[in-house]
Amino acid sequence: MLEAARVSQSSLPVIDISGLSSPNLSDRKAVAAKLRAACLYNGFFYISNHGVDEGLVADVFTEAAAFFDLPPETKAEVDKSRSKVNRGYEPLQGQTLEPGAPPDLKEGYYVGPEHAPDDPRVLAGMFNHGANQWPSSRPNFKPVMEAYLNVMLDLSARMMGGIALSLDLPEGYFKGYCTDAMATVRLLHYPPQAANGNPDQKGAGAHTDFGGLTLLRQGDVGGLQVWDQATGGWIHADPVPGTYVVNLGDMIARWSNDRYRSTLHRVVNASGRERYSVPFFYTGNYAHKVECIPTCLAPGEEPKYPPVTVEEHMRAMYKRTYK
């Protein structure tokens, strides 16, 4: 029940997005056409030529592996329970993504944009806005993660411009959503799943992602599985060097009235090795309202979802997966 098929690359295409940085609108629209095809199919695809420095990516994985290798008592010093804004270390089995399934067999670390105590959003109690926690035993951890966060915010905003064009919208349609955007760098460590373990337990249970876009950097150990709409079964999304796996989150589905899918995926680490991955969850401006794009409606079709702010949506999603 935890197995998946290996399929041709056409099911999960690799899209060269260098054209999104071109000054020529025709080049940007050419990339958008490929994004559109992928979003209408599984909502999962790889991107190449994204501009993120491979040296920085290597540093992120080095710091992640070193942190997770620390003694439990050291990791507990930055436990997420010490943060009011869900930042810091999340212990093994700290989250249950799949309703009715056992807790996920993974440990993680949350990093987000830094907000000072006197920031108006912090003073107003806006969800997840505040300060990060940093492990004192890893002096390079903070500068590496902050550098990576900033690079990925830029890449995600560029991708949202491509998504807008793919929906035949003005390129700046999501500008308000991308202004003062929230996002999460989430470091993840999946220990090998025991051969005689609970057959219902997974590294990450089947789920859709909460936000707008997820840009996942995988290490060299696979385990990501995607629900394939065409076959009605799970398929592998194996690591492809130098690429990101991109998938659409629930907010894109709400905006497009499910024209673009937020697809189920899960992690099953049956490799017998330690698995590390770094998803970047692009959530957007928490005050922004997400409501159905009129041009995404077919004649006579009604919106499936009521308007909601990003903050309202995220509060509901955290409540669902964290007891």
Results as ranks from 00 to 15, higher is better:
225 Q>L: 04
193 Q>L: 15
15 I>P: 01
74 T>G: 00
257 N>M: 05
221 V>H: 03
79 D>Q: 02
61 F>Q: 07
89 Y>R: 10
36 R>H: 09
20 L>E: 05
182 M>F: 13
30 A>T: 12
174 F>R: 04
108 G>Q: 05
236 H>I: 02
257 N>E: 04
210 F>D: 02
125 G>H: 05
19 G>S: 12
149 L>M: 13
117 P>S: 06
3 E>I: 14
29 K>L: 09
323 K>P: 11
268 V>K: 07
107 E>A: 10
185 V>H: 06
78 V>E: 01
161 G>R: 15
230 A>Y: 01
26 S>D: 09
131 A>K: 14
271 S>K: 08
286 Y>T: 10
168 D>Q: 03
84 K>F: 02
123 L>V: 15
96 T>Y: 01
86 N>G: 00
80 K>W: 01
178 C>M: 11
255 W>F: 13
154 D>Q: 14
31 V>K: 10
160 M>K: 06
222 G>A: 15
61 F>S: 05
241 P>C: 08
253 A>G: 03
40 L>A: 12
262 S>Y: 13
100 G>Q: 12
197 G>Q: 07
90 E>V: 14
153 L>I: 11
145 M>N: 09
162 G>T: 05
262 S>F: 12
323 K>L: 06
54 E>L: 07
244 Y>F: 15
21 S>N: 13
281 F>M: 13
322 Y>A: 03
273 R>I: 00
145 M>L: 15
94 G>S: 04
46 Y>R: 14
108 G>C: 07
37 A>Y: 00
144 V>Y: 06
113 P>D: 04
310 V>T: 10
77 E>T: 14
128 N>E: 10
272 G>Q: 06
168 D>L: 03
54 E>D: 06
177 Y>H: 11
130 G>H: 04
229 Q>L: 12
295 T>F: 01
95 Q>N: 05
105 L>R: 09
166 S>L: 08
3 E>F: 14
8 S>I: 03
59 D>N: 11
200 D>G: 01
138 R>P: 01
148 Y>T: 03
26 S>T: 07
178 C>H: 05
115 H>D: 00
267 V>E: 01
201 Q>S: 04
73 E>Q: 10
166 S>W: 06
135 P>I: 13
288 H>G: 01
137 S>H: 10
99 P>W: 09
105 L>M: 13
239 P>N: 13
28 R>L: 03
76 A>E: 14
266 R>Y: 06
279 P>K: 10
211 G>M: 05
39 C>E: 07
278 V>L: 09
292 C>H: 12
264 L>C: 03
148 Y>W: 07
302 E>L: 15
159 M>T: 05
214 T>G: 01
115 H>L: 10
40 L>K: 11
116 A>E: 09
126 M>V: 14
95 Q>Y: 03
180 D>L: 01
90 E>S: 10
65 A>K: 15
200 D>W: 02
97 L>Q: 08
266 R>N: 01
301 E>I: 09
40 L>Y: 07
202 K>L: 15
259 R>Q: 10
50 H>Y: 04
260 Y>A: 07
281 F>A: 12
322 Y>S: 02
178 C>P: 00
18 S>K: 15
314 M>K: 11
37 A>W: 00
68 F>E: 04
